[in-house]
């Protein structure tokens, strides 16, 4: 590299017409011999041309004070609505699962269902889930039912993880799956933890919990 070009930053002031006559003459002499500055001036002219239709008032106009409070209010209403739907839906799903479990295993002592839990929303998301936990000799089997009910939200085929958190707060990822709008998934995963050692189960998306159930 050669020594830095003393005119490197003069392009825009020149195009804006903000230089005095002596500086203009100096810079134009330099321009005749400097391809870099010539290219910079051409680009500055293109960008400056865009400004000709714009008014100063448009650039400085302030965002109304009422915008943020209104946004928070709408988010609050949305959150309450979501929570209501989540709770209602989760109750229905849980009731159905219990019914199915009772019908499927009316007298099977070796495979009794220990817990059925609906996962509550940690953040707003299009995904709902419930889990059925069964203690086995080697730990706990978790049967997860996960549904993508929202119309929009996560990208189609988004990746989710089932995570188990033990009583010490240590999370373990059990399995992952992809889900898109209108799809649902039922699958089983196992953990070596007995049911009474599980503090909570979570579903994460993009490394953040979106649904959670404390046992």
């Amino acid at each position: 590299m050669t020594s830095p070009d003393p005119f490197e930053h003069v392009d825009v002031a020149y195009v804006f017409g903000a230089l005095d006559a002596a500086e203009v003459a100096q810079f134009e002499t330099h321009l005749a011999t400097c391809d870099d500055c010539t290219a910079r001036v051409a680009e500055a002219r293109s960008l400056t041309a865009l400004l000709s239709d714009v008014s100063e008032a448009e650039i400085v106009a302030a965002v109304p004070d009422t915008l943020l409070p209104g946004l928070l209010r709408r988010a609050g209403a949305e959150r309450r609505r979501q929570r209501w739907i989540t709770t209602g839906l989760a109750a229905v799903v849980a009731a159905c699962l219990v019914t199915i479990a009772i019908m499927a295993f009316p007298s099977s002592p070796s495979r009794h269902v220990d817990r059925t839990v609906a996962l509550a929303a940690v953040v707003t998301s299009p995904v709902k889930a419930s889990a059925q936990l069964t203690e086995t000799e080697s730990g706990t089997q978790i049967k997860l039912h996960c549904t993508y009910t929202g119309r929009d939200g996560h990208e189609p085929g988004a990746l989710y993880w089932l995570v188990v958190v033990d009583k010490h707060g240590v999370p373990t990822k059990l399995s992952n799956w992809r889900l898109g709008p209108g799809e649902d998934q039922v699958f089983e995963a196992t953990t070596a933890l007995p049911v009474n050692q599980i503090d909570s189960i979570e579903i994460t998306y993009a490394s953040h919990p979106i649904l959670s159930a404390k046992l």
Binding site: P64, L67, V123, T124, G153, E155, A206
Partner: peptide
């Protein structure tokens, strides 16, 4: 205002966008 609020609400509900 309505448009801006609704746009930001959708961004809030779509965490993937912010990633």
């Amino acid at each position: 205002q309505d448009v801006v609020q609704e746009t930001l609400l959708r961004a809030w509900k779509t965490p993937a966008v912010l990633d």
